[in-house]
Design a protein around this nucleic acid. Structure first.
Lengths: 207, 207
DNA sequence: AATTGTGAACCTCTTCACAGCT
DNA sequence: AGCTGTGAAGAGGTTCACAATT
């Protein structure tokens, strides 16, 4: 597949949510210009993003909201469930398990890992807490394809390395450290500090 | 000030954390090339990013870790505390209060707002929960400059509008919706769904 | 008449490459 | 000799503008 930019993928996610909202409001047709306005970008950008994947609109009319949402779901790989594991059941881990908003979207946390012997064996929201030593077996048995890293920064690299050996290629990393992975592995970082610091920079230098 | 790109600011945050780690490990001098390797980018990128703000290195030698960290802290506006309010004390809100990692970095949550009368008046971690009706007064009294939006998506825009009226210019938005704000206001979005969907796209199309 | 899909133009960000310092 | 700082070149992403279509 032709290289698609990260920005395009992020915007597709946004269009997807925009369309979900529109469908809920009973809108059944929309123009690239309206999608653009909602997201504060240009209509050419919307059309160009979509054009990488096909032609989904009708000239003179616009896009059918349901169909376009369906197409974007297909592009993003959201027409199926993903089995997700979470590593590290400390503050962030606990918070994420509680906030299971994303379960609705097909991301199911089916296993938790922690290396605290006190926690191993317990169950949270009917998800078992396992020892990291059992990772290889559990990843295979449960067909886990995405791993959320919620361990302290100093353990993030080793943890990711371990799960790569178990065959995992996709990570959502909450540890605020840079990690190195091979080309066939993707790590996405979720790091509130970066956003807060961007706000701090803005208030200090720009506003 | 000359327009600085968002990417540059994000990378400065990363260099800042890289330097913090290096200092903890007792490293006192580092080259742009080493900073680059740690963050999987090029050394020219590191030097260019820094060059927008001044010249911090010594040719032939590299950078002093403590001094560079200090300079970046100054650039990002981290040499002071920021008073932060959180709006919405549901699942995400509770999680964030528990996860006060960022308190260490000078971001202090000093007020919580919720419009559930049952919650108003309670205290969490010695932070009072207030009615949103009192926002104007509290923002002024506590000198709140950053507001974290942890309300349901359908209320995000109205909540942000309200706090803009109270004089707030910087928001960290956890609601998964696009919001519109004037030019002198910055909203940073923290949206796990976008990252998970990027992983889903990668696993589906790229890997 | 309205709106898409897209090549071309434009702009921004990244990398190169080297003069200039230490 | 080694590494920074930076103008120039290159790559990549965004917007323009218009032919094609409904």
């Amino acid at each position: 597949m032709k290289k698609i930019s990260d920005s395009t993928i992020r915007r597709l996610s946004k269009y997807y949510r925009t369309l979900t909202g529109l469908i809920e409001s009973g809108v059944d047709t929309i123009s690239s210009n309206e999608i653009a306005n909602i997201n504060s970008i240009t209509s050419a950008q919307v059309r160009k993003d979509l054009s990488f994947f096909g032609t989904f609109g009708k000239r003179g009319l616009g896009y059918n909201t349901e169909q376009l949402r369906e197409q974007i779901a297909k592009i993003l790989g959201l027409k199926r469930n993903w089995n997700v594991a979470m590593v590290g059941f400390g503050n962030i881990g606990r918070a994420l398990i509680n906030y299971m908003e994303f379960k609705k979207q097909g991301f199911h946390i089916s296993a938790i890992f922690d290396n605290d012997p006190m926690k191993v064996g317990q169950e949270v929201e009917s998800i078992k807490i396992n020892s990291i030593d059992d990772a290889a077996d559990i990843v295979r048995e449960q067909n886990i394809e995405i791993v959320i890293i919620a361990v302290p920064g100093k353990h993030a690299q080793a943890t990711i390395d371990h799960f790569i050996k178990c065959g995992v290629h996709a990570f959502l990393n909450f540890a605020p450290v840079a990690v190195k992975v091979p080309d066939d592995v993707l790590v996405k970082n979720e790091n509130m500090s970066i956003e807060l610091e961007a706000l701090s920079f803005f208030l200090t230098n720009v506003k």
